[in-house]
Design a protein around this nucleic acid. Structure first.
Lengths: 115, 115
DNA sequence: GTAGTATACATCGATTACCGATGTAGCGGT
DNA sequence: ACCGCTACATCGGTAATCGATGTATACTAC
């Protein structure tokens, strides 16, 4: 279950929306999927996850429906709305700007920039 | 002086140490230099800067001396210590890991990855 | 049948980082 | 004389998120 890696700090909403872009998924599954996609580098607990999902839902970026069909406890399955897709695009752009800026100031080995 | 851009969120110490790697500099100048290097994308106020400098000094990553030689108010000039240089290397590595992980999950256009 | 484990939801208080406002003061220009 | 820039510093508030805790369902093993 891989807790105790680096924390999320600011990108949580984007990560959730990005996972939901591939397919609708329930909360618990979103957290697991983020761990998988990041090779266990990014991880967070329920106290971080559920409030974030509620905020995204209130903003109209995702929509929820209950799925009681499967086995186990009922699942609240979230789906990306058109607004959410637009928000994801904005977040991606902001992240790219931000990380490029940090790279610029932080320096170290350059990332094979174009001439 | 160029406030109101994106915030720093987690990388403040690294940015300061990276600037000091080039040359010793005083607090106010560090803030200006970060703005310049990031093309005004990264910016923060005094309430963010000075507490960070004090924390870095307490951790032994930077050392301060007063410079009263120049014109204007006295300047507190900070210099990177060997420990600070090591810490900067750690921060650079952590940032690279972190941003790579976010890229992986966030997706969008890939950054011209190696085959 | 009941104990343990994994799934799955949810809330709450504490912590941390950061921002914005405010204050002091020296110096240069008009 | 006053404004604006440099340069230091502190303080209170806020937002993000972490950790702990609680509830419930279902499968597996004994």
């Amino acid at each position: 279950m891989a807790r105790s890696s680096i924390h999320i700090s600011g990108n949580l909403f984007g990560l959730i929306l990005a996972v939901l872009e591939s397919a609708p998924l329930h909360g618990y599954g979103i957290a697991r999927e983020i761990e998988i996609r990041s090779s266990d580098a990014l991880s967070f607990g329920e106290g971080t996850l559920y409030p974030a999902l509620r905020a995204l839902e209130q903003d109209g970026f995702i929509e929820a429906r209950w799925d009681t069909s499967g086995t186990g406890p009922a699942k609240k399955v979230y789906e990306l709305t058109p607004d959410g897709k637009a928000e994801l695009a904005r977040i991606r752009e902001a992240w790219r700007d931000y990380s490029r800026s940090i790279d610029q100031v932080l320096g170290g080995l350059p990332k094979m920039q174009s001439a």
